[in-house]
Design a protein around this nucleic acid. Structure first.
Length: 895
RNA sequence: GGUCGUUUAGCGCAGCUGGUAGCGCACUCGCUUGACGUGCGAGUGGUCACAGGUUCGAGUCCUGUAACGACCACCA
C-alpha cells in the first residue's frame, strides 16, 4: 500500500520517536553472548559539569558510527557510557554557586559540602546524558557508570593500595605546581604555558668575603626572600675565586652560600643564578644536591607567609612527626600577608632603594598557568602523593612499540611515546573535597600512617583514633582505570571476561597525555593487558573561520541548536563528511545545510519508490535483470565492498563520501530516472524495476544507517522489510553474482552519449521541450540499440536510429569515444558556429593524442612501464585517432 | 629550542600502494522534465607553496626552503 509522505523531511517528527522505539526494543543493550565475537568501546566520560559541545558531538558521532556498523555486522557490541566527576571543575562550580549565597566551604564543612556536590550531580549530571541521546548515541544505558560510583571507587582504592605496597606510590615534600586560585596542587599535564610580557630584573648580591657585587637575573623577584644559595658553574673562570664564599641576601641581610652546580649555565646571562628551593623546580633540585635549606615564603593561597605560618610550621617540626625534608617557613615581616603580586612591587621598591637593582630587561616569557582558571601557577614545595612513573611507563612504551595498541593515524604513536618517555612522577593528591579521598590514615599520637582498602578507625600500632588524609585524588587517577573499572574490575566479572580488553578508544589528540597514556600504563599494570587495540584520534572542530571554539571568543556553536534546526542526522553527516583521522575540521551552517539537503534527497527518493510500489513487492531480486539493473547492482555491490573496507580501516569520511556520491549521482540522478521508463510502462517490467529499486534502496539505507540512524530507520520501516529494526538488520555483503562488468561498460558508453547530446543541446540553447531525431553511428550497435528509450527520456530524442554509419544532411554531429551522433536541426543551426565548435574540439583531442603519442614513442616507457599500462595507453591512442577521424569527417560535411 | 602537522579551483576539503587532477559550497546559462527548486540539466574555474632529486612518468616518494598551525620544553 502506497503511503503518503511529506514532500520535505522533517526530523522533528521522527528523531525522538525513533529513539524511544530503539530504547523500547532494548537494541542498545549488550547481551553478553559468550560465543559471539565482541566489539567494545568505552565512552570518554564527559564531565558532569559539561554541556554538549561540538567536540563531544564529533567524538560521539564517530563512536556511534563504529558501534552501529559492528552491531549490524553481528558482533556482540557494547558501547559503555558514563560520566566523570571532574573534581576541580565541579568543585569550582559548586564553590562559585555557594559564593552567590555568601557561604564558603570552610563554613559548612566537608560533609555538608559533599552533600551539596551530590545534589548538584543528581540535578545536573544527567544533562549531558540526555544530550548524547539527542545525538542518537546507541549506548548501553543499563551499564552507565560514574567515576565516583561504588564500583569505580573500589577500583581506585584497590589500585592505590597495590601501588603503595609496591612502593610505586609515595608521599613526600616535592616541587608541585600550585594554583593559588583553585587552592590545590595540579599535575604537570594540567599546566598550560602562555606567553606573557615580563622582565628580567638584574639584581646585585654582595659577596661577603670579597665585597664585590654579583649580578644575577630573575623573573620572579618576589621569591628572593626564600633564597638559600647562589649558584655558579664550577668551570666558570670568572667566578673561580668565589668558591666557598657567601652572599649577603639583600633586605634580609642573611648570609647564604655560593655553591657550584651544573644548573648554572656559563653561556646564559651572567652565569650566576639565585637559588630558591621552595619556589622553583630547578632550584629545588639544586637544593637537594647541595643539601640546602628549603625556605617557604608563600602561603598556599598566594600570600607571603608571616608569623602565624612560621609558628605553625615550627611547632609541627618540633613535634617530631614531620618528615626530615619538611620545609622551613619564613616570617616575611613587613611583606607578610601581601599577595605575591603586591610583594613583588614592594620588594622591588625596597631593592631599588637599597641600590640592588642594576637594570630591568623586558622579555617575553612562557608562564605556566592553571588549565582550569588560567591563574599563574606558583611552583611550591608541598607534601603530596606521587606515582612513580618510570617502572609503569616502561611496559606501556613497549606495548605500543610492539603494536599491541595502535594509534590511528600512526603519527600519534610518536606523540604518545614522547609523552611517555618524558613523563615525570605524577602528583596525584589534590587539596579538594570532591573526589576519591586518599585511603591513608594518620595517627596523631604516634605518627603511624596506614594505607588500606577498608576504612580505618584506630591506629594499628597504638590504638589511638586516626584521621584520614584530607586530600582527594586527581580526577585522572580514576579516569585511568575507566576501561576496566567500568566492567567490574577488580572482580573478575562476566563482563570483564567477555568485553575486555576493549577494541577502540575514540578521542581527541589534546588528551593523549592526560588520559590515553595513563589508561595504557594502568591497564598493563593491573590487568596485564592493554586496554584497547586501537586509539582513533580525531581533531578539533573549529568555527567557519578556522578558529578554536571557545567561551571567551563566544564563537562556540551549540550542537543542540543545530539539531533543532537541521536534525541530528544532518549534524552527524556534517561531522563525518570529510573527516580524516587526526585532522581538525571546520564547521559551518553551509555544511549542515548541505547535509540537510542530502537527507531530504534520500527522503524523496524513498517517497518516489513508495508512491510506485504495489501491494506486495518482493524483497528479492527478479530473475530478469535489465541492463540498467545490472549496472546499478554492480556499482552498488562494489560500494558495499568499499564502504565496508573503509569503515574497517576507520576511514569514516571516505566511506560516507562514497555513499553520498552513489546515492545522489548514481541512484537518484540516473537509476531512478531510467527506472521511470519501465514503471510507466507497467506490467512485469515495472514489477522488476520495483524489486531492484527496493533492493538497492534497502542496501543503501543499511550502509548509511551508522551515519544517519534516524532517517534510515524511518524510511526502512515504511519500505517492505524483514525484521524489527534496521539497526539490528544484517550489514550488506559483497556478492560475486552481482558483478556485471560488461553491463557497466555498456552503460558507460550510453551515459557518455547522453551527456554529450545534452551538452550540445545546452550549448546551442535548444529548448528542452524541443525534441529532435537522433542518429547514433557506432560499432557498438547492440549497446546503442538498447539505449533508444534512454535517449528519448534523457536526451531530448523524439526518435532514435542506430547503425554502423550514417550520412545525415544538415545535421549537428556529436563525437564521443564510441559513437558519432547526428541530430538534424535544419535552420536552427548556425553552421559557421558549428564548424568552429568542431574545430575547437578537434584541436583539443589532437592535443590529447599528442600527449599519448609522446609517451608511446618513448622507448623507455615501452620497455620499463608495466605491460597493462602500455596497453591502456595504446587503447587510448586508438580512441583518439578514431575520434579525430570522425571529427574531421563531420567538419568536411559542413563544408 | 624540540617534535609533528598543514600548504590542491574564489571558499571548505578528498586524492590509498606514483600512470595526463576530483567533491561540496559559491559562480554562469537553461529548466513549473508527475520524488525532491533543500530540485534537474549544462558549464566557468587549478603551471597541486617554492627549489632540487629519484623515476620512462610525481599532487602522490626523497632532500631542502618558506608561510601558517599544534603539541612538548626548567631557559635563571
Amino acid at each position: 500500500m502506497a503511503k503518503e509522505l511529506a514532500k520535505q523531511y522533517d526530523p522533528k517528527n521522527v528523531e525522538d520517536r525513533i529513539y524511544n522505539f530503539w530504547l523500547k526494543g532494548n537494541y542498545f543493550h549488550a547481551k553478553n553472548e559468550p560465543d559471539k565475537k565482541t566489539y567494545t568501546i568505552v565512552i570518554p566520560p564527559p564531565n558532569i559539569t559539561g554541556q554538549l559541545h561540538m567536540g563531544h558531538a564529533l567524538d560521539n558521532t564517530l563512536q556511534d558510527i563504529l558501534i552501529r556498523f559492528r552491531r549490524m555486522q553481528g558482533y556482540d557490541t557494547l558501547w559503555l557510557p558514563g560520566t566523570d566527576h571532574a573534581s576541580i571543575a565541579t568543585e569550582a562550580k559548586i564553590v562559585e554557586k555557594m559564593r552567590e549565597e555568601g557561604v564558603t566551604k570552610e563554613e559548612i564543612g566537608r560533609e555538608k559540602f559533599l552533600e551539596r556536590a551530590w545534589d548538584w550531580k543528581e540535578k545536573y549530571g544527567g544533562t549531558i546524558i540526555k544530550q548524547l541521546k539527542k545525538m542518537g548515541s546507541s549506548c548501553d544505558w543499563e551499564r552507565e557508570r560514574f567515576t565516583l560510583d561504588e564500583g569505580c571507587s573500589k577500583a581506585v582504592r584497590e589500585v592505590f593500595v597495590r601501588l603503595y605496597d609496591k612502593k610505586l606510590i609515595y608521599r613526600g615534600n616535592r616541587m608541585v605546581n600550585w594554583c593559588p586560585c583553585c587552592n590545590t596542587s595540579i599535575s604537570d599535564a594540567e599546566v598550560e604555558y602562555e606567553e606573557k610580557d615580563s622582565n628580567f630584573w638584574h639584581l646585585l648580591y654582595t659577596v661577603k668575603e670579597t665585597g664585590e657585587k654579583l649580578e644575577l637575573a630573575t623573573t620572579r623577584p618576589e621569591t628572593m626572600l626564600g633564597d638559600t644559595a647562589v649558584a655558579i658553574n664550577a668551570e666558570d673562570e670568572r667566578y673561580k675565586h668565589l668558591h666557598g664564599c657567601h652572599c649577603i641576601l639583600p633586605l634580609l641581610n642573611k648570609e647564604i652560600p655560593i655553591v657550584c652546580d651544573e644548573h648554572a649555565d656559563m653561556t646564559k646571562g651572567t652565569g650566576v643564578v639565585k637559588i630558591t628551593p621552595a619556589h622553583d623546580p630547578n632550584d629545588f633540585e639544586v637544593g637537594r644536591r647541595h643539601n640546602l635549606p628549603v625556605v617557604r615564603t608563600f602561603t598556599y593561597d598566594g600570600h607571603l607567609t608571616g608569623k602565624k605560618e612560621k609558628e605553625e610550621a615550627d611547632a609541627y617540626i618540633a613535634s617530631g612527626r614531620a618528615a626530615a625534608d619538611e620545609p622551613e617557613v619564613l616570617d616575611c615581616g613587613k611583606y607578610a600577608g601581601m599577595t605575591t603580586l603586591e610583594a613583588r612591587k614592594a620588594i622591588l621598591e625596597d631593592l631599588e632603594k637599597g641600590g640592588y637593582i642594576k637594570y630591568i630587561e623586558p622579555i617575553k616569557h612562557e608562564v605556566g598557568t592553571c588549565y582550569r582558571c588560567h591563574t599563574s601557577i606558583e611552583p611550591m614545595v608541598s607534601k603530596q602523593w606521587f606515582v612513580k612513573m618510570q617502572p609503569l611507563a616502561e611496559p606501556a612504551i613497549e606495548a605500543v612499540e610492539k603494536g599491541e595498541t595502535v594509534f590511528v593515524p600512526d603519527r600519534f604513536t610518536k606523540n604518545y611515546l614522547n609523552w611517555m618517555r618524558a613523563t615525570r612522577d605524577w602528583c596525584i593528591s589534590r587539596q579538594l573535597w570532591w573526589g576519591h579521598r586518599i585511603p591513608a590514615w594518620y595517627c596523631p599520637e604516634c605518627g603511624e600512617m596506614t594505607v588500606s582498602r577498608e576504612d580505618v578507625k584506630k591506629c594499628p600500632k597504638c590504638g589511638a583514633a586516626v584521621e584520614q588524609d584530607p586530600d582527594t585524588l586527581d580526577t585522572w587517577f580514576s579516569s585511568a582505570l575507566w576501561p576496566f573499572s567500568t566492567l567490574g574490575w577488580p572482580e573478575n566479572t562476566q563482563d570483564l571476561k567477555h568485553y575486555y580488553p576493549t577494541n577502540t578508544l575514540v578521542t581527541g589528540y589534546d588528551i593523549i597525555g592526560f588520559w590515553v597514556s595513563r589508561m595504557i600504563f594502568s591497564a598493563i599494570e593491573y590487568t596485564g593487558q592493554v586496554p584497547f587495540d586501537t586509539v582513533l584520534i580525531h581533531g578539533l572542530v573549529r568555527d567557519a573561520l578556522g578558529r578554536k571554539m571557545s567561551k571567551s571568543l563566544g564563537n562556540g556553536i551549540d550542537p543542540l541548536k543545530i539539531i533543532d534546526e537541521y536534525g541530528a542526522d544532518a549534524l552527524r553527516l556534517t561531522l563525518a563528511t570529510g573527516n580524516s583521522p587526526g585532522n581538525d575540521m571546520r564547521f559551518s551552517d553551509d555544511k549542515v545545510g548541505a547535509s540537510r539537503n542530502f537527507a531530504n534527497k534520500l527522503w524523496n527518493a524513498s517517497r518516489f519508490i513508495l508512491m510506485n510500489l504495489g501491494e506486495n513487492t518482493e524483497l528479492t531480486l527478479p530473475s530478469e535483470l535489465a541492463i540498467e539493473d545490472k549496472w546499478v547492482l554492480s556499482l552498488y555491490n562494489n560500494l558495499v565492498k568499499e564502504v565496508t573496507d573503509n569503515l574497517e580501516k576507520f576511514e569514516l569520511g571516505i566511506a560516507v563520501g562514497k555513499l553520498y556520491d552513489f546515492i545522489w549521482d548514481i541512484f537518484c540522478d540516473w537509476y531512478i530516472e531510467l527506472a521511470k521508463i519501465r514503471l510507466q510502462d507497467g506490467g512485469e517490467n515495472a514489477d522488476n524495476a520495483k524489486r531492484v529499486l527496493v533492493y538497492v534502496m534497502t542496501g543503501i539505507l543499511k550502509l548509511l544507517h551508522p551515519f544517519m540512524p534516524f532517517i534510515t530507520e524511518e524510511i526502512w520501516q515504511t519500505l517492505p522489510h524483514e525484521g524489527e529494526s534496521i539497526m539490528v538488520s544484517a550489514w550488506p555483503e559483497f556478492n560475486e553474482e552481482l558483478c556485471f562488468d560488461s553491463e557497466e561498460a555498456e552503460m558507460d558508453r550510453i551515459m557518455t552519449a547522453i551527456r554529450a547530446v545534452r551538452n550540445r543541446r545546452a550549448e546551442m540553447n535548444v529548448a528542452p521541450s524541443k525534441k529532435a531525431k537522433v542518429y547514433v553511428a557506432s560499432s557498438y550497435t547492440d549497446t546503442f540499440s538498447k539505449a533508444g528509450v534512454f535517449m528519448k527520456r534523457l536526451a531530448g530524442a523524439s526518435d532514435v536510429e542506430v547503425g554502423s554509419e550514417f550520412d545525415v544532411a544538415n545535421s549537428v554531429s556529436i563525437v564521443t569515444a564510441d559513437a558519432t551522433i547526428y541530430i538534424p536541426m535544419g535552420e536552427l543551426i548556425d553552421f559557421a558556429a558549428e564548424k568552429a565548435r568542431l574545430t575547437k574540439e578537434l584541436e583539443k583531442v589532437q592535443k590529447d593524442l599528442d600527449f599519448v603519442n609522446a609517451k608511446l614513442s618513448n622507448d623507455n616507457f615501452i620497455s620499463r612501464a608495466p605491460a597493462n599500462v602500455v596497453a591502456a595507453q595504446r587503447e587510448q591512442q586508438a580512441k583518439y585517432i578514431e575520434k579525430i577521424n570522425m571529427l574531421k569527417e563531420s567538419i568536411e560535411k559542413i563544408g
